[in-house]
Design a protein around this nucleic acid. Structure first.
Lengths: 202, 202
DNA sequence: GGCATTTTGAATCGACCACTCCAAAATATC
DNA sequence: GATATTTTGGAGTGGTCGATTCAAAATGCC
């Protein structure tokens, strides 16, 4: 019954995500969002309440649309080679970080800034999915080890190493690294997950 | 002959570095620096010219005092095992990232923010040492391969992987990761640098 | 002590920040 | 068409940002 919106909510969130993703939370102003949406500040606040809440919605959307498909690989029980699973996960995210029509890097790693001792909600918002990724990966490695796979390190260390590599791949993409470079890193890291008992290939 | 400074230049840079390191460039205001130094804004601008130039000096100091000692390991020719070299480098930086009386993480990775398409001098300032680290590491791997060492990937890929791991270790430290966790990641990554021809240990 | 030189403190600059207020506009229901 | 409900545009809120100005203060040199 009320006046309809000029730009649908999900579309507004997508636009906001692109801005936060490319410039980070701090360097994205309400004026930037206003210009990108073609709406006044009042419309933004009427729809989302605050810049922080809009950022939260944008990050949630990023998780759903860009990370969740690959995260599903490791959240459900899987009896395949854990190295191959990590390889698929990392290669998929490598492509996300170097998408042609998306900003370089990973929104979860880059857009929130560093988590300072004191208040910085944006950093906390992006830290939660990072921790979740470490936890899920670790759990997956625990299951893989139970299934008899010979891992090259403890599940916790492997999870930390894989997430560290992903974080660094995001950084590399932001520094201008190519998709091929990121894929090479992904392959190399994945190949180090399982213990290799003999020399492989040339 | 002139009036002496209340706080020496190198000491002021150290204090500024600690602030930039812990809060990042954007979230560190002139007022913050003024309070930490016990000086008025005019003194800061008289001594350093601008916030950006002070940041540049602080990052240079970080490179000299915290990174250069470990970087020296890979810049000069070395005939030892490249894996052991990487291990020493990464373990040393892991300790820097989790120092008791320094902020968590790496100033070069965390304090500058993401390099946006458009102007953000702070991001560019921190990108230069990141690129230098990749370049030096790659060159070191090239030499190691010439010396007959059997690397597990191309020098460029290995360099990108090691720097990615370091970047991720910095992120992990900012997320509350312990020194032991970072050291484990460092050991695991280093062990993957050389090709392992047979299973090693338990 | 007087002078040149530099730093220091305090007040202040315009610009931009996230955010708000309010009247006009656009719809569904009646 | 009248009314209720929500969005929209635009002006404007106080606050903080980086940066500046200027007189007072503190030194070495003479």
């Amino acid at each position: 019954m009320p006046r309809p919106r000029l730009v649908p909510e999900h579309e507004a969130i997508d636009i906001a995500l692109t801005l936060f993703w490319s410039r980070g939370y701090d360097r994205t102003s309400i004026a930037d969002l206003s210009a990108a949406l073609g709406l006044g500040p009042s419309s933004i606040y009427n729809a989302f309440g605050s810049k922080e809440r809009l950022f939260r919605r944008a990050i949630e959307r990023y998780e759903e649309t860009h990370v969740a498909p690959w995260l599903a690989l490791i959240s459900e029980p899987h009896d395949g080679d854990p190295a191959e699973l990590v390889r698929t996960l990392m290669r998929g995210l490598a492509r996300v970080y170097t998408g042609d029509d998306t900003p370089p890097g990973c929104a979860i790693f880059e857009s929130g800034g560093t988590a300072s001792p004191r208040d910085s909600q944006a950093a906390i918002i992006t830290q939660r999915p990072r921790d979740a990724l470490r936890r899920d990966l670790r759990q997956r490695f625990v299951e893989a080890r139970r299934a008899g796979h010979d891992l090259s390190a403890t599940p916790a260390t492997l999870a930390a190493a894989v997430v560290s590599a992903l974080s660094g791949m995001s950084q590399l993409a932001c520094d201008g690294g190519s998709r091929a470079q990121l894929l090479n890193v992904a392959d190399h890291v994945a190949s180090g997950v399982v213990r290799r008992t003999r020399s492989s290939g040339s």
